[in-house]
Design a protein around this nucleic acid. Structure first.
Length: 563
RNA sequence: UGGGGCGUAGCCAAGUGGUAAGGCAUCGGGUUUUGAUCCCGUGAUUCGCAGGUUCGAUCCCUGCCGCCCCAACCA
């Protein structure tokens, strides 16, 4: 897994309203230092939206010489799993961030949280409610109508305490009662209408096992966890802005050790894909993709498997800017960042994806020779390698046209092209099968053009890649396109109808130059003229599999498209 | 119709009283043994709309319009 170029990401120190706040707070001496946290719920894999939050939180900690905690918001055992806890840590590390010894879990604080809840009850600020879910919903009112007080709202402290402790002791079934904060059923902010703080859930927790059968919900766990860890700036996405008054209410009404502040920024939306855990989970569970790390997934693990360098993800995020605007970033922006990293880092190789056999008639039978090729034309430090050449080679089917248009610079009857790092060849004869399909080309080469230059100074317009048939190594190659057709994927369950049926194309027999057989899993190279490719996890010595991370920019496709 | 947010080029976005940065995309042109890379050039008389304040407004005020989020014992 070493796609990282080690290059500096982006350019210049990022600036945004949150960093402005941090800077001002530090300048005013409001904190000893900045402490942030990335708080994922372990109920799925991390995606690019999380990457934005990770880069923001860890990035600020780095820039201001503070620290960033990794804290699992594991308050809902019904949905959370150990597998996700591990995958998340792997992904954060791969992105290049380190939480040091600050790996925390909201579940570490269950005992403290419980004690604080008791305190709230004693202060008359929380009560146990017996209302069934649907009734509680009815009592909550609507967005335009105030709610009504629950008939259980005025239970006395002793009864509340007793009931709450019995909830903890497991005396009641799931859903029988909840603990609620006593705030204001008429608030315009739904979150302040006596929000639920604890619910009964007889469900084993990945970390605390069966020690608990009541669990705090997000609102009761998050802010207090921040306070326990002395988080200074608690950064979250915009949909939590409405929770801020509750976040603050809890911090004011509980004797917490510190007073963190919450700030919201807009979440990332990317064209041609979905960035919601619910929908990504559905794609995985319904088998629409090959798991969370399917290279078409916008997950961190999907990017990694596809061959995208972590530096490209970081660079992409750094170009986004942190704001409160809703918007959708074009996939082209991500692709640009990927190409920029890979163009510099990826060694060049040759592979023929859709083979067409070429026999070089004037090249001696049985002869072969080693030709020298650069590993990176723009970077001599990456060295050279030898590529075997012989009488029979494969070239790309798309590099031959029987009746080529004026602007086509590749092979055609009677045309001469350069074989990259090899010789000029001229097409003399086209061989077809019974159905009229071209199956082979008969060509001649010019021995004087070895290496690719003609001593007589004559030029060719096209240079194509090739692989010696005798030495070629077979491989499977998977080409990916965007998972969804629409720039803006439709909401609801309609998103499934928008799945691109051609998002995966498997090429069963691709011919590789021999050097490619030595590539280890996770390394990304450029197949010249074809794009960037990465050896897949499933790749075996005798059954190589490559994923295309991304194609090269293709101006020929545009020219062709216009005519 | 309650509460909370947001509106600067196709996309992301700086600027927040002195006359519209940058990146991506697009479209031109040059270099090139990858139609890649690289290099150069290319777009807002205008900042959601309408009024107002001001010598001057994207920036201040008023009104309007549009979009997003909130009625889980999810996070």
């Amino acid at each position: 897994m070493d796609n990282d170029t080690g290059e500096a990401d982006g350019n210049g120190a990022p600036t945004d309203f949150i960093r402005d706040i941090v800077r001002a707070d530090l300048a005013a001496g409001r904190h000893g230092g900045v402490v942030t946290r990335f708080p994922p719920e372990p109920n799925g894999y991390l995606h690019l939206g999380h990457a934005k939050s990770i880069c923001l939180n860890f990035g600020i900690a780095q820039e201001f010489d503070g620290r960033c905690h990794l804290r699992f918001d594991d308050t809902n055992p019904a949905k959370e799993e150990q597998e996700f806890i591990e995958a998340i840590q792997r992904d954060v590390r791969w992105l290049g961030f380190d939480w040091g010894d600050h790996l925390h879990y909201a579940s570490d604080y269950f005992a403290q949280l419980f004690a604080w809840a008791e305190g709230l009850i004693e202060a008359g600020k929380a009560y146990v409610d017996d209302l069934p879910v649907d009734e509680m919903r009815a009592y909550r009112g609507t967005v335009t109508e105030a709610g009504r007080n629950s008939p259980f709202r005025d239970r006395d402290v002793a009864e509340n305490l007793d009931l709450f402790r019995r909830m903890k002791a497991g005396e009641f079934p799931d859903g029988a009662r909840v603990l609620r904060a006593k705030i204001d059923m008429a608030s315009g902010n739904m979150n302040m209408r006596d929000p639920v703080l604890y619910r009964i859930l007889h469900s084993a927790h990945p970390r605390t096992g069966t020690a608990w059968c009541i669990y705090p919900n997000y609102d009761f766990a998050h802010g207090q966890s921040d306070a326990i860890e002395a988080i200074t700036h608690s950064l979250c996405t915009l949909e939590f802005a409405d929770h801020r008054p509750l976040y603050e209410w809890l911090l004011e009404n509980i004797a917490v050790p510190s007073q963190p502040k919450q700030y919201e920024f807009s979440r990332l939306n990317l064209s041609h894909t979905v960035l919601s855990k619910r929908r990504l989970t559905q794609l995985v569970d319904e088998g629409r993709v090959d798991g969370w790390d399917d290279p078409r997934m916008p997950t961190v693990s999907g990017m990694r498997r596809r061959g995208v360098p972590a530096a490209a993800v970081r660079d992409f995020i750094s170009r986004l800017a942190i704001t409160r605007n809703d918007g959708q970033v074009e996939m082209a922006m991500l692709e640009h960042c990927i190409r920029e990293q890979l163009n510099v880092a990826a060694p060049r190789r040759m592979a023929v994806l859709r083979p067409l056999k070429v026999v070089i008639e004037n090249y001696p039978e049985g002869k072969s020779e080693a030709l020298v090729a650069q590993n990176h034309p723009g970077n001599p430090d990456m060295g050279t390698r030898e590529i075997p050449f012989g009488r029979e080679i494969y070239v790309e089917r798309d590099d031959f046209m029987e009746d080529p248009p004026r602007k086509f610079f590749r092979l055609g009857p009677g045309r001469e092209v350069r074989l990259r790092y090899a010789y000029f060849i001229t097409c003399n004869e086209v061989i077809k099968d019974a159905s009229g399909e071209v199956v082979e080309l008969r060509c001649s080469y010019d021995p004087e053009t070895k290496g690719g230059n003609a001593p007589d100074g004559r030029k060719v317009k096209g240079t194509i890649h090739w692989v010696s048939a005798q030495h070629a190594v077979p491989s499977e190659v998977r080409l990916y396109e965007s998972l969804f057709n629409s720039e803006e994927v439709p909401g609801g369950d309609d998103f499934l109808d928008d799945i691109n049926p051609n998002s995966l194309e498997v090429l069963p027999q691709v011919w590789l130059e021999p050097a490619l057989a030595e590539l280890s899993v996770g390394q990304t190279v450029q197949f010249e003229r074809m794009g960037y490719f990465c050896a897949d996890l499933s790749s075996k010595e005798d059954a190589l599999v490559f994923n295309r991370a991304l194609g090269l920019r293709d101006s020929w496709a545009k020219i062709k498209g216009k005519s």
